[in-house]
Structure formats: structure tokens, C-alpha cells
């Protein structure tokens, strides 16, 4: 379980996060929803230790972040984070070199599934292809948690479909997935739990199916209530 408690963050004299708390459980897909600039990416970066927070705590399975945990938790940012001069094969080699939890066989399967070529330079990838390769790097690790920043934004329809397919596959079974989005779109039925971020705090956090059974509201209905108010 990823537990985020009361985290705060100031950036350029603005309180981006004002005490954000939520949890993301293993075996579930949790979606962090918020308008652009609501600080969704900052939350993910804070969990991954890529940016300091000015208050609050973050625990992953009860532990605070330490280098060894990077074997257990992988992050797919909204852009590819390998040097442009590397070939795809170099990047895979790099991952295999540095991560004990790297699963070469799975990475190969994913490369085939996304039809990615090993000899291509990273700098020459289109946005959709880069997003797919980014996902290969994230899923190639046998990690317990997977964090994805806007995995569907700005990429073509077919890349979206391919990525959606990953979400319903056994690739993410038993993992805890935390992803961000600013529009729920076709993800409505993919996610277990929604966490709505507004004005630097969590204004709603619910399991989608419970919300539907108990209040007869879709995620979009709740979003309307939260963001239109």
C-alpha cells in the first residue's frame, strides 16, 4: 500500500499541495484526477523521491523511500527518460544492468507486443512510440507498484488502445497501479479507485463501483460536482 499523508509543497510562491492524503492499494488501479496544474505529477514525483516536499509523510508498504525500494516501485513519467542518443536495446541493457528486478523475458514480450524495434535511436521515436517504450521500461521491472503520469495524454488512438490493453492484462495483475489523468475518458471502467485533487487537497476519494452502487454516480458525475462547484 502506498500511503500519502498530508503532503505539502510550495513551488514558486504558490502552495501546489496543501496537505494531500490518500492511499493506493496493491492489486488495484488508483487514478489521481485533477485539472492541469493541480499538482498530480508533483504527487507522483514526491512519492518517487524526485522532488522534496515541505511537509507530510509517504510510506510504501510501511517504509519510507530508500534506494532499494526502486526495485519495487517503478515510475513511467509523461515523457521518456533515457538519453536521446541511446538505442532502444541500449536502454533495455541499462535497465537490466541496474535493476535486479528487471524481467528480461517480459521486456522482450512487451517489445514484441508494441512492435518496437531494438535498433532504433530513442531520439527518433514519435510521441506515441516513446510512450509505449516508456511503458516497457516501467512494466519490464517486476515491481509491486507502478506509477504512471498521464499515460494516455497526447498520443494517437492506436497507441491508446495498445496501452489500454496492457491495463486489462496480467501484466499489471497483483500490482498496485497509480496513474494520473486530467480527463477520465475511456478509463472510467479501467480504474478501481478515483482520487480527485482540487486546490491542493483531495476533495473526494472513492471506489468507483461503490460510488455506482451506493449513489448511482459515475466518476464523471462526481468530477462534475467537484470541478464545476
Amino acid at each position: 500500500m502506498i500511503e500519502v499523508k498530508e503532503i505539502r509543497k510550495r513551488y514558486r510562491r504558490r502552495n501546489v499541495l496543501n496537505g494531500v492524503s490518500f492511499t493506493a492499494a496493491k492489486g488495484e488501479i488508483t487514478c489521481l484526477i485533477g485539472t492541469n496544474g493541480a499538482g498530480k505529477s508533483t504527487v507522483l514525483k514526491a512519492i518517487m523521491g524526485l522532488t522534496p516536499v515541505s511537509g507530510g509523510t509517504i510510506h510504501i508498504d510501511g517504509q519510507t523511500l530508500m534506494p532499494e525500494l526502486y526495485e519495487k516501485i517503478s515510475f513511467v513519467p509523461d515523457h521518456l527518460t533515457m538519453p536521446a542518443g541511446m538505442k532502444l536495446s541500449d536502454a533495455l541493457r541499462f535497465m537490466a544492468d541496474f535493476y535486479d528486478s528487471w524481467n528480461e523475458k517480459r521486456a522482450d514480450e512487451l517489445m514484441k507486443f508494441f512492435r518496437l524495434e531494438h535498433a532504433v535511436k530513442i531520439g527518433s521515436l514519435s510521441k506515441g512510440t516513446a510512450a509505449k517504450f516508456s511503458l516497457v521500461l516501467g512494466l519490464g521491472q517486476d515491481s509491486d507498484y507502478l506509477l504512471l503520469d498521464e499515460p494516455f495524454s497526447g498520443i494517437d488512438l492506436f497507441s491508446r488502445e495498445a496501452i489500454t490493453e496492457v491495463f486489462t492484462s496480467d501484466l499489471i495483475q497483483h500490482r498496485g497501479v497509480l496513474l494520473t489523468t486530467h480527463e477520465i475518458g475511456d478509463m472510467e471502467h479501467l480504474i478501481d479507485k478515483a482520487v480527485l485533487l482540487k486546490d491542493g487537497v483531495v476533495s473526494q476519494s472513492f471506489h468507483c463501483e461503490e460510488m455506482r452502487s451506493e449513489e448511482g454516480k459515475s466518476v464523471i458525475d462526481v468530477m462534475r460536482e467537484v470541478y464545476r462547484a
Binding site: G27, E28, I29, T164, E165, F167, T168, S169, D170, Q173, D186, H189, L190, I191, D192, E209
Partner: peptide, 17 residues
């Protein structure tokens, strides 16, 4: 469960349920 989740593009936990 997994096949159906993929076919219907829904969360495998939902299919499980």
C-alpha cells in the same frame, strides 16, 4: 477473468467481482 477483462476493456478486478 483476464480474457473477459481484456475483451470488454474493463478492470480485471471488476470481472472478478
Amino acid at each position: 477473468r483476464r480474457e473477459l477483462g481484456a475483451l470488454m476493456k474493463i478492470n480485471p478486478n471488476t470481472v472478478q467481482k
